[in-house]
Simulated scan of single mutants.
Amino acid sequence: MVDIGALREEDRAAWEVLARADVSRERGASRLYWTTQDSDTAARALYDKVASFNGFVRYDCPLV
Rank of each mutant, 00 (worst) to 15 (best):
D3Y: 04
D3V: 05
I4E: 08
G5E: 07
A6G: 05
A6N: 01
A6I: 00
A6F: 02
E9K: 12
E10S: 12
R12K: 15
A14R: 15
A14T: 10
A14V: 00
E16I: 10
E16G: 05
V17W: 08
V17M: 07
A19N: 13
A19P: 04
A19H: 08
A21G: 08
A21L: 11
D22G: 11
V23K: 12
V23H: 06
R25D: 09
R25I: 00
R25T: 08
E26R: 15
R27A: 13
G28E: 06
A29I: 02
S30L: 09
L32I: 03
Y33F: 13
Y33M: 05
W34T: 06
T35Q: 03
T35S: 07
T35R: 11
T35M: 12
Q37C: 07
Q37F: 02
S39G: 02
S39K: 04
D40F: 02
T41M: 03
T41I: 05
T41R: 06
A43T: 13
R44Y: 02
L46R: 10
Y47N: 03
Y47W: 10
D48I: 01
K49W: 06
A51V: 02
S52V: 12
S52R: 06
S52I: 07
F53Y: 13
N54F: 02
G55P: 01
G55T: 01
F56T: 10
V57G: 05
R58P: 01
D60S: 15
C61S: 14
C61G: 08
P62D: 15
P62C: 09
P62K: 09
L63Y: 08
V64G: 14
V64P: 11
